[in-house]
């Protein structure tokens, strides 16, 4: 295949992978409430899944020392004293996967006290897989593997 044509094809495929909307199953926004237990150095449940547009309420219960929660991407946080419950409510209007982490120094492993919030599909993961496939295809088209030994 003409190398220039391959390059154009790859660039177009790259744009599709980057910007094409992913198939989503539409669900009407709901109100979702999670009781999130926090202890040194983990959340339970550690992974939360909601749909885009959902109104999410997290009731953070700290079971040992002071803990908090900060949600990457949403820039929201709340802290809870031991034995107490703190509440954080927000509309999950940004799709994707976000880490949430403790925002109060709570002990040695505090920087690694992390959970995961997924709003809708994990777009970045799927697009990254697409980019990986494209990277390999691009390399193959530049230098076919079948004849490289």
């Amino acid at each position: 295949m003409n190398p220039r044509f391959s390059l154009v094809l790859l660039a177009m495929a790259g744009l599709v992978v980057a910007f094409a909307p992913l198939p989503v199953s539409f669900t009407a926004p709901q109100t979702r409430t999670f009781e999130l237990d926090a202890r040194q150095f983990a959340y339970s449940p550690s992974e939360l899944h909601v749909s885009p547009g959902d109104t999410v309420t997290i009731r953070l219960v700290s079971t040992d020392v002071v803990h908090g929660i900060y949600i990457d991407g949403y820039d929201l946080s709340v802290t809870a004293d031991p034995g107490q419950t703190a509440t954080l409510t927000f509309v999950a209007d940004k799709p994707g996967s976000f880490r949430f982490r403790c925002n109060v120094t709570c002990g040695a492993m505090h920087p690694f006290m992390i959970g995961k919030l997924t709003v809708g599909a994990n777009d970045w993961l799927y697009r990254s897989i697409g980019f990986s496939i494209l990277a390999i295809l691009g390399l193959l088209s530049a230098r076919p593997l079948i004849t490289d030994y």
């Binding site: 202890r39 150095f41 983990a42 959340y43 339970s44 550690s46 992974e47 880490r99 040695a108 492993m109 690694f112 006290m113 992390i114 959970g115 995961k116």
Partner: peptide
């Protein structure tokens, strides 16, 4: 997986 993942049991085991 252990340090940046959401799995508390793995962190406990490593620490």
């Amino acid at each position: 997986g252990v340090l940046l993942g959401p799995w508390g049991a793995l962190k406990d085991a490593a620490y």
